[in-house]
Design a protein around this nucleic acid. Sequence first.
DNA 1: GTCTATACGAAGATAGAC
DNA 2: GTCTATCTTCGTATAGAC
Lengths: 189, 189
Amino acid sequence: MKTLSRKDEIISVAAHLFNEKGYKAVSMRDIATALDIKAASLYNHISGKQEILSEIILKVAEEFTVGMEKVVDENSSAIKKVEKVIELHIDITVNHSEALAALNNDWMHLEDEDLKAFVKMREDYEENFRSIIKQGIDAGEIKRYHPEVILFSILSTLRTLYLWNQKRGKLDVNILKKDMVSVLIKGIV
Amino acid sequence: MKTLSRKDEIISVAAHLFNEKGYKAVSMRDIATALDIKAASLYNHISGKQEILSEIILKVAEEFTVGMEKVVDENSSAIKKVEKVIELHIDITVNHSEALAALNNDWMHLEDEDLKAFVKMREDYEENFRSIIKQGIDAGEIKRYHPEVILFSILSTLRTLYLWNQKRGKLDVNILKKDMVSVLIKGIV
DNA sequence: GTCTATACGAAGATAGAC
DNA sequence: GTCTATCTTCGTATAGAC
């Protein structure tokens, strides 16, 4: 447990509100009220609303980037790598559920450099995942479906995991990993 | 091809803009500009911004409700019903991709009666899907995983299908149905 | 059915006192 | 570090002329 700086507190409270109502629907006054201060006081700690959004989204986006690079560099089968990616998503979801809401829903409200950086990270991430799947197909480990259908099915489930995690309240992480990996890879029949 | 009334035109243009930027980030002026008229003129056709959102979301939500009821009333196996639900989603996605963006991202900005109606429809829909899955498990057609994990995996893929449909530009619908059904039901290995 | 003009409130943000 | 006061812009919406 480290002490949160005032800036971290602001970001944390903002992430919570963005998660509930969306970036555009939350005002600086809303954020200030939740912290029991006035809106003007926020500007002693952050440059503006944009900075709050960037901090929330880019921080967690970098976790995905780093995690994916680790998986890619592993010396293991494609299926094993897919499993590792699924586990990566589950771990990040459990720890940063609210930041993921902003990442998924409000990334388009990033501006200029931050927007470019985010889009690049997301594209690289998808491309890495796509390669893993294609390698799996070529190696005969994965069925020869349209790779985009496979990529999309898995990724869309993983990307909305944060919603489910919030609604169904924290099923045990290890059970979740086990069943989720099975369902996504081995199917339900 | 039927002729669009001015109201329908407004709703259609608004859906397109909501899809790109989100409900809260689109102003009445934006909608008017896209139609080459002034914002004040919109109010001759609709009562306000809220009405536009309701029309977009509730219309497509009802399509899901009706479609799901048909599937539930069918006399067929649980797996066959799951397939039918997947096809229902694909059909609606292909025809109402932009409305689905609003439904997924902006439903929380509905108000009062409309919000209540939407939440009820969504809950009923999920409950029907959950029942189908449980019946499948009890009948031995579906593997005995946590039913919520199965429900969530399939539903999250189907709910974000509109994103993929927009990005990867209209893969042939029948190929999509075939591969999607296979991947979701039979897995990838 | 669309326009101009306008009311009214809420938004992000800054200046300067304490 | 927080406050009050304030600026400016932008939002939804209405009234009434054409």
